[in-house]
């Protein structure tokens, strides 16, 4: 039990520490792919530190909700990191919150950031909130259906158990997971405010979604939100790796196995981040009203994956 708890805390700490690095890596790859000189991979850390040092500037008419929201968003993402098996599957918190609760935690963060964006009452804030909820209402069911498909294969909704089954069970090929994998990739792009749905680098007001909600934030609040969105990317990457490339994840609270899993995870994340940058470089941003088609495709693929699993048993 103590070992499991230590493994739990270690994984959350690793997630908190590595998340900005992943963002830095993706940015670096993007820069290389578009023939630009890349910024330092440590830039996100420097940005977060700089923001923490600054004085927070809060709008005159902001309510306490506005100042509370960054903490809630960050807290929800940190809790989500405690459910996602990144290094090992010995996660006691995975018993308290399963995949449905994981999606619920993401939704909690989304609702809070959208409410905070509406709090100041600016045109951009409400526009961002509306678009974020709009993306969310299609992405969330698709994500849930992907997770359900994996749950059906392993007969459990607990994410550590799913990963244990997929990684250490008898090796099987699941056609349903192929559909689910495509759907999951599409959902992850949308949920993490990536091209083709959103552009993390844009500050052109009319095209942004995620950034529009953060416009009024500064200093430590912004730092927490930046860190939370890095954590979100990290969590999604780890969910994807755990479901579709589950090999190398340690089972149980064995300290050596967990330490051995760390380099595997970093290698997998490096490849995944480079692929993400490649997708982003190769695709163009969609108009906002193309987004439903994109996400509806993801949703249908995920439902198809579940149907394949249920009807063909594969």
């Amino acid at each position: 039990m103590l070992g499991a708890l230590a493994s739990q805390i270690l994984q959350v700490a690793v997630a908190l520490a590595l998340a900005p690095l992943l963002v830095g890596w993706v940015d670096q790859c993007r820069a290389w792919l578009s023939n630009r000189r890349a910024p330092s991979i440590l830039l996100p850390y420097r940005t977060i530190h700089k923001l923490f040092v600054k004085d927070a500037v809060v709008a005159d008419n902001a309510s306490p909700l506005f100042r509370l929201a960054p903490y809630v968003v960050f807290g929800a993402m940190a809790c989500a990191a405690a459910i996602v098996p990144s290094l090992g599957t010995a996660l006691p918190f995975g018993t308290a919150a399963d995949t449905i609760a994981l999606v619920g935690l993401f939704a909690l963060a989304r609702v809070f950031i959208a409410l905070a964006a509406m709090d100041i009452g600016t045109a951009f804030g409400t526009l961002g909130a509306r678009r974020e909820m709009f993306i969310g209402f299609l992405a969330e069911p698709a994500l849930l259906m992907v997770l359900f498909t994996a749950s059906l294969i392993s007969g459990s909704t607990s994410l550590p158990t799913i990963v244990d089954t997929l990684a250490h069970g008898p090796l099987g090929i699941y056609p349903s997971l192929a559909f689910a994998g495509v759907a999951f990739t599409m959902v992850s792009l949308a949920e993490n405010a990536r091209v083709p749905i959103d552009n993390p680098a844009t500050h052109l007001e009319l095209t942004m979604i995620h950034e529009a909600m953060l416009l009024e934030y500064s200093a430590r609040h912004l730092a927490l939100l930046e860190w939370a969105s890095a954590l979100k990317l990290f969590n999604y990457s780890c969910i994807g790796l755990a479901l579709f490339v589950p090999f190398g994840v340690a089972s149980g609270a064995n300290a050596l196995a967990i330490l051995g899993a760390a380099p595997v995870l970093i290698a997998k994340l490096a490849v995944g981040g480079a692929l993400l940058a490649l997708i982003e470089t190769l695709s163009a941003k969609l108009r906002i009203f193309r987004a439903p088609e994109f996400l509806a495709t993801a949703f249908l693929l995920a439902v198809l994956a579940m149907l394949v699993k249920l009807l063909l048993g594969a």
Partner: peptide, 28 residues
């Protein structure tokens, strides 16, 4: 599974509706 998909779609849309309700009445 189709029914489960319809259910989660309805639940996700409910979050949209409630953000609209709360944001427009109490915030801004």
């Amino acid at each position: 599974p189709l029914a489960a998909a319809a259910l989660v779609l309805a639940v996700a849309l409910a979050a949209y509706v409630m953000v609209k309700f709360y944001g427009v009445v109490f915030l801004g």
